[in-house]
Each structure stands twice: as structure tokens, then as C-alpha cells.
């Protein structure tokens, strides 16, 4: 039991627990924070897999930017209380869904553990990594040479997303809000 294994086990447990807490939370703010914990643990796993750059990006972009955006939205909508979601449904009603998800995980595990991936020599310890694997230099070199076009296209995607987000979230002055009540009265 070396240090690597200890770190792996701890961060794996934290990642799974954080994710579980996220989905069972009723308070959205707490869910976001749980997700953030899970992400931090995942970043550790990334670094263990020699993805130094991506681990950093995950923390900065995901935990730092995206989740903060979630928090902003939650605050904007003032969603502290959860009563508008109605009474919580029982575990029994969701039993089928739990079972299905469990089956899915079991299938994945079976695939990974069985001889399904024999050709890819997945079973066994990690082999030796080449020099500079996963550093900023190596990823950037690939990103700006071989994958230049996809990278540039990503910028267009983000631009479209920005425009779309602005357009959708904008308050439309021409159309009066809540249509339900008005329709009901007429």
C-alpha cells in the first residue's frame, strides 16, 4: 500500500460521495457545493493520471467558473427554499430507477473486468509514461497543430452559446409574463 494507492482510494471515495450527495440534496446551493467537492477529487484523479494541465483546467474552469455560474443563477432565482418543488417522492416510487442505474454500473464493471478489453491490455499496472506526458507544452503542441481547426471551431461554439444565452435570458418587454393566469380568466 503505497502513497499512490492511498491517494487514489481517498479521492475516489470523495468523488463518489460528493456526487451522491449532490443528487440527493434538496437544497440547490448544497448540491452545487457537493458537486464542487466531487470535482476537486476528480481533479486529483486527473493529476494522478498525469493529466496535469487538465486537472488544473478542471479546477479553474469547472469548479471556479461554471459552478459559480450555477450559484449565481440559484441566487438570482432566489431558490433557497424548496417548497415549490412539492412534496418529496418516496424511495419506493424510484426503486425502478435505482435498479436501472445500478444495472448500468454493473454492466460497465462487468465489461471492464471481463475479457471484453483484453486486446487493449487494460488489466494490469500502469506502464511507463513518456517524457513530458500531460504537461501544458505537450497538450498545447497538439492543440495548436493537429487539432487546430476543432480548437478554433470551439471558439465559434462558445460565441454562439454566449449569444444564445443572452437572447434567451433577456426579458422580453413585449410579451407579458405568466400566461397561465390570463388564459384561465378569459
Amino acid at each position: 500500500m503505497n502513497l499512490d494507492a492511498v491517494i487514489f482510494i481517498i479521492s475516489a471515495i470523495v468523488a463518489v460521495l460528493g456526487a451522491s450527495m449532490m443528487i440527493f440534496q434538496r437544497n440547490p446551493v448544497m448540491a452545487v457545493l457537493s458537486f464542487m467537492v466531487s470535482l476537486l477529487a476528480q481533479a486529483v484523479l486527473y493529476i494522478q493520471l498525469d493529466a496535469l494541465f487538465l486537472g488544473a483546467v478542471l479546477i479553474i474552469v469547472y469548479a471556479g467558473a461554471v459552478l459559480v455560474l450555477f450559484l449565481f443563477v440559484i441566487m438570482l432565482l432566489n431558490l433557497r427554499t424548496t417548497k415549490e418543488l412539492g412534496p418529496s417522492s418516496s424511495l419506493m416510487r424510484h426503486l425502478g430507477k435505482y435498479f436501472l442505474s445500478f444495472l448500468l454500473i454493473m454492466e460497465f464493471v462487468f465489461i471492464i473486468k471481463s475479457s471484453f478489453f483484453k486486446g487493449a491490455s487494460l488489466v494490469g499496472v500502469m506502464n511507463m509514461k513518456p517524457e513530458g506526458f500531460g504537461t501544458v507544452t505537450s497538450v498545447a503542441t497538439l492543440l495548436f497543430t493537429k487539432y487546430l481547426y476543432p480548437f478554433e471551431l470551439t471558439s465559434i461554439l462558445i460565441l454562439v452559446a454566449i449569444v444564445g444565452a443572452v437572447v434567451m435570458a433577456r426579458k422580453d418587454k413585449n410579451i407579458d409574463r405568466p400566461t397561465e393566469n390570463k388564459l384561465g380568466k378569459n
Binding site: S101, L104, E107, I111
Partner: peptide, 16 residues
Amino acid sequence: ATIFLAGVVIIIAYMV
């Protein structure tokens, strides 16, 4: 989504 997932599970089971 539930029905979709059930389909996915069945298809994977079939393939595996």
C-alpha cells in the same frame, strides 16, 4: 429518460 435508460441497459446487455 427512464425508458431511454432501460433501452440502453438492454442493448448493452445484449451486446455483452
